[in-house]
Amino acid sequence: MKILIAPDSFKGSLDALNTAKSIEKGILTVDDTVQSTLLPMADGGEGTMINLVQATEGDVVSVQSIDPLGRPMMAEYGITGDGKTAIVELATSSGIDLLKIEELNPLITTSFGSGLLIKHALESGIKHFIICLGGSATNDAGVGLLQALGYQFFDDKGHELLYGGQYLNDLSTIDDSQVLPQLKDAHFEIACDVKNPFIGEQGASYIFGPQKGATPEMVKQLDQSLEHFANIIKKEKGIAIHQLEGAGAAGGAAGGMIALLNAALKQGIELVSDFVNLKTLIENEQFDYIFTGEGKVDGQTAGGKVISGLCQLASKYQIPVIALVGGVEKDLHKLYEQGLTAAFSITNGPMTLDKAMTETEILLEQQAEQIYRILSIK
């Protein structure tokens, strides 16, 4: 029997590699002759960096950076096992979880710290980047990130813009004469699972601004600032990002990177699957089953999460997919249509969320064992 074990992490409880190991342990309890392949997966959101590092046996690099309010901090990015790709999560240095609720203010928060991580990787010889946008505290169109890479943004008096989305409305010119020379040969891919445009009622400021601390008045101000930024980009670079699908991700950071770093926007699960050569692995190994999992499965999971991506690929090869999750919520008919065979909650009785998160490892092992006992019936 050949089994692929390819879960996402159980956020706040267990990373993807140890999730896979727990599932494997349960299966091997029943049959130690099973040939299992462990492949940590991710969908481009928070946790993608460590999952790809684990999947490729890479390394994590610590760098002196700043948080969204400019305070010094240490932050991390990943380098894949072949040493050729850096994985940078905006949440690591520009994340909403780095601030207290009362500190949230997208008028002044900056993505500069994330740019420092990219700069370090560029100066270390990395040319390929995967940028994960989830969980940012910023609404600055990625200008802070770009400033860290040498881009200069000036107002009409020749003063360089201060950090924060509110100052984008003062932008007059963009100077790329001081950008890092390594950028010329660099290739950026953005993992993004939202389709929001750069501006407007479905754009970055209106949809994501409030969760980052923006009042209704601030939302309008930020949207006007982003529109002005997009107008300058159109004037100087000939690129229209105003209504570009996905450009509004991470407070418009996607749009800024598309315009000035020529970044390619990709759905997170597709980017990760391509990077780890998931299709080739499935084609070559001819697995009998695929086990996957993540914190919970619900009606939204079919929209681009790890389980959804695996199901759609496995269905082409008629491989059953079994998901072990913390909780099963709502109707899963879309996942069944995509190829999911069954989803099982790992909880084995009434328990608090804290208890379930504390015991995730053993619960995964126990449930995997019981499932495989059924599968192994002759």
Rank of each mutant, 00 (worst) to 15 (best):
E201I: 13
D175G: 09
H187T: 06
F198P: 14
D185W: 04
K184H: 06
Q202N: 14
Y163W: 11
L180M: 11
Y163R: 09
D193L: 00
L162M: 15
P197T: 09
C192A: 08
A204R: 08
L183M: 10
L183F: 04
Y163I: 02
T173N: 10
D175C: 15
E201F: 13
I207R: 06
Q178E: 10
P181R: 04
G200R: 13
Y163T: 04
L171C: 09
T215W: 03
L168S: 00
S177H: 15
Q166W: 04
A214P: 11
S205F: 02
L162P: 03
V179H: 06
A204D: 00
G203M: 01
N196L: 14
D185M: 10
S177M: 03
Q166I: 13
F188I: 04
D176N: 15
D170N: 13
D175H: 07
Y167W: 15
Q178I: 02
A191I: 05
I190P: 03
Q211G: 01
I207W: 07
A191W: 04
Y206G: 07
Q202G: 13
A204L: 06
A204F: 02
F188S: 06
G164I: 02
C192M: 10
G200N: 07
N196Y: 09
L183H: 08
L180G: 05
L162G: 08
D170H: 13
I190N: 00
A191C: 10
K212T: 07
E217Y: 06
G209R: 14
Q182M: 12
G164S: 06
G213L: 14
T215A: 03
K195D: 15
D176E: 15
T173P: 05
F198K: 12
I174C: 09
N169G: 06
Q166C: 06
D175N: 15
S205M: 03
Q178W: 01
G203P: 00
F188R: 01
Y206Q: 12
E189I: 10
Q202T: 11
I174A: 13
I199P: 06
I199A: 11
Y206I: 04
D193F: 00
S205Q: 08
L168V: 02
K212I: 07
S177K: 11
L180V: 07
Y167E: 13
S172I: 01
T173R: 12
L171P: 14
V194F: 02
H187W: 01
T215H: 04
P216L: 02
A214M: 10
Q182G: 09
G165A: 04
L171G: 06
P197Y: 07
N169H: 12
Q178F: 03
A214N: 10
D170M: 09
K184W: 03
E189C: 08
I190H: 01
A186Y: 07
F208M: 00
P181W: 02
Q182C: 12
S205T: 05
D175M: 11
T173S: 14
L180R: 05
A204S: 11
P197M: 05
E189S: 10
E201D: 11
Q178A: 03
G165M: 01
E217G: 10
C192W: 05
V194D: 04
